[in-house]
């Protein structure tokens, strides 16, 4: 017997994505992967927004999704640019090697 898919299912999915993204940020050593994990977090948000938009039968949420996507792209671009500058200077993309600034 099939259950109808309700907004709750989307919320669970997005929560899972959020957790996966967060854990990825916390665990992965490669900064490129960390950037990807951040994208996961943002996509969790997007799923939420799309689902709510559908639930309320209303367009604002989808506009929000598009905005978030655009911003995420910008953020990733800047992130990669900074990462490249770092790689040129230090020859590493591993988070643990960022150890000049401490205390």
């Amino acid at each position: 017997m099939l259950h109808a898919i309700s907004p709750i299912h989307y919320l669970v999915l997005s929560a899972l994505l959020l957790v996966i993204g967060t854990v990825g940020v916390l665990l992965r050593r490669n900064i490129v992967v960390i950037l990807m994990s951040i994208e996961l977090i943002l996509n969790a948000v997007n799923i939420n927004l799309a689902a709510f938009s559908r639930m309320h039968a209303q367009i604002q949420g989808q506009i929000f999704v598009l905005t978030v996507m655009a911003v995420a792209v910008a953020e990733a671009a800047v992130g990669l640019a900074v990462l490249i500058a770092l790689f040129r200077n230090r020859g590493t993309v591993i988070a643990d090697d960022l150890d000049l600034l401490k205390w």
Binding site: P7, S14, L18, G21, T22, V25, I31, I34, L35, I38, I41, L42, A44, V45, N48, L49, A51, F52, M55, Q60, G61, F64, V68, E75, V78, G79, V82, L83, A85, L86, N89, R90, L98, L100, L101
Partner: peptide, 30 residues
């Protein structure tokens, strides 16, 4: 190199915090 490192740390952590704010926003929208 210090400037690079500062920027990257700020960026990554800032992006995570934005993600969480945004998650909260999405719930408020809901």
């Amino acid at each position: 190199r210090r400037s690079n490192e500062a920027a990257l740390k700020y960026l990554l952590l800032g992006a995570v915090s934005s993600g969480f704010i945004l998650y909260g926003f999405s719930l408020l929208y809901g």
